[in-house]
Nucleic acid binder design. Structure first.
Lengths: 297, 297
DNA sequence: TAGATAATATAACTGGAGGTTATAATGAAT
DNA sequence: ATTCATTATAACCTCCAGTTATATTATCTA
């Protein structure tokens, strides 16, 4: 293709002088003279008129100068983008995550990262986990943050960031559940509040119930963890929520944790990524920050 | 600059496969593999994710793909323009010429050339000769067609295309001028019609008069040769015009040539060009056509 | 589970393009 | 004429983009 010849063409045309161009490019004058001649012979077309003062473009040279300039500018733009990306001056981080984890776990990191690298964009998707995995495989997400376990095919990798505990919570209206130790099966008598399907948390809870041969049926399916908490607060029933998300309500005695036996086992959460995927510089940096912070804890 | 590497990048990205790209480009697969690796090392940035099915772009690769594509398209556009120019599929011919020569000499050639090469543009400038010469030197004209002699500086070249004769013409109202031989100085008594200044023809006539110690003064300065002829036809006076431009009127006896002694010497006309200038393919072809036609005559 | 397949990666080699320095040619300015 | 600043030419050299042959890898298939 000999595209480099056009860079010489451009510099010579701009400087109107082969010698000056050679100084600027740190190449010898004969080298450029030869290359320009080569270019002219390739297209069988004189591009410069030479004289003692330097060179000027022929009509043909003029004809194409703007296109060449544009081409080189596009190249420059591309290489500049790479450099900026390396310096985290630009970039996009596309995360798939549940709204609750986003709100309760991710937000502080995004805030912190954005402060350090304000030109890096975040794209947060909060579709159901199954949809997120599809998008991850299609290359539309960089990684997912989700609770484990989930169905991990062998093209996916994952690692833990932390763990969360699902608990049963009630308002002060349910004194008997607050003061006493309760068997899981006893909860059958109470109205249960759960997250609406599809939800991996909901799946997890239901699987836990089945394993313990208890058939809890949800009377209210809340679309969000937030909404569920509100229902529990006004005494609608026994909410199943992640304890970390109701710390405030527990401390302020708006909600009380039910001392259930057996407890719902803790669940880890963390990063799910496509093994074959290459993480952009900004993703790597962001994840580095998150991991470091969670290892220190 | 290694711009050629980006062409490989582009082809590999489009084919999503190094081997396929290598077939298409008629280069071996290892050559491309090596070059892509070189590109990645230059920018310290992975551009492709390799797997068994081929390769796909990393986020960074995707980031710049469009810019690279645009750059290559601009190069393609430029080279295509050169090729088209060589084939006379495009081009511009910028001619400086007087309105009279344009109308009476040039037009048929433009018509003929346009029929053969319909995408070649003509830009005809009809400023005074001095202005045309300036524009020629500035590179805004390809060549001038004008009557000789004119002030030729040594950066200009010229050659003859044909010759024209200036004559005195009158309507049938001036019987005495039509039937008799007339001395130039006798014309002083008559109203004279000349072309308006600035005009090299007017200069030429006046110089001729001065040389012959005759002081003809123009009573009407016509802005165009055409207008002058109309004045002469209605008997306003003795018109000074180029015989070739009034052939029709002479034949139809609307005007009569005055048999003056001495005659105004014939004047050559032809091409004036800038010696250092390079003529584009289409200019050369056009001039070739004009010259050939005028040599045959 | 072994073997075929299809892709990329590596190694060793080679020719020529793109660079070098030195010098010639050119033409304008002094 | 001489100087100056430019481009052109010549002879040479180096390194890199290409080559072929082979290794590696992961997936698909029987």
């Amino acid at each position: 293709m000999n595209l480099d010849l056009w860079y010489l063409f451009y510099e010579v045309a701009k400087n109107k002088n082969i010698s000056k161009a050679s100084e600027k490019l740190h190449i010898s004058q004969p080298a450029i003279t030869k290359q320009i001649k080569k270019l002219e012979s390739i297209y069988d077309c004189k591009l410069f008129i030479r004289n003692q003062k330097g060179v000027i473009l022929t009509p043909e040279g003029n004809l194409i100068f703007n296109d060449i300039e544009q081409a080189l500018n596009s190249f420059f733009k591309a290489t500049q983008k790479i450099k900026d990306e390396q310096d985290l001056l630009i970039g996009t981080i596309r995360i798939g995550i549940s709204t609750t984890l986003a709100k309760n776990f991710l937000m502080p990191y995004i805030k912190k990262f954005h402060k350090a690298y304000p030109n890096v964009n975040f794209e947060i998707s909060t579709d159901p986990t199954s949809k997120l995995k599809e998008e991850l495989k299609k290359g539309n997400l960089d990684f997912i943050i989700n609770k484990f376990p989930l169905i991990i095919t062998d093209d996916l990798g994952y690692y833990k960031l932390g763990s969360l505990e699902d608990v049963f919570v009630v308002s002060k209206d349910y004194k008997e559940l607050i003061t006493n130790k309760i068997n899981l099966k006893d909860l059958v008598k109470y109205p249960i509040l759960m997250q609406k399907q599809p939800s991996s948390s909901r799946d997890y809870i239901e699987k836990f119930c089945i394993e313990n041969k208890v058939n809890l049926h949800s009377v209210i399916d809340a679309a969000s963890s937030n909404l569920l908490i509100e229902f529990a607060k006004i005494g609608y029933g026994v909410g199943v929520v992640t304890r970390e998300y109701v710390i405030k309500e527990l401390n302020q005695k708006e909600l009380y944790e039910v001392n259930v036996n057996p407890k719902i086992p803790k669940r880890d959460f963390g990063i799910i990524y496509l093994k074959q995927n290459y993480l952009s510089k900004c993703c790597e940096t962001f994840l580095g920050m998150v991991e470091k912070d969670n290892n220190q804890k």
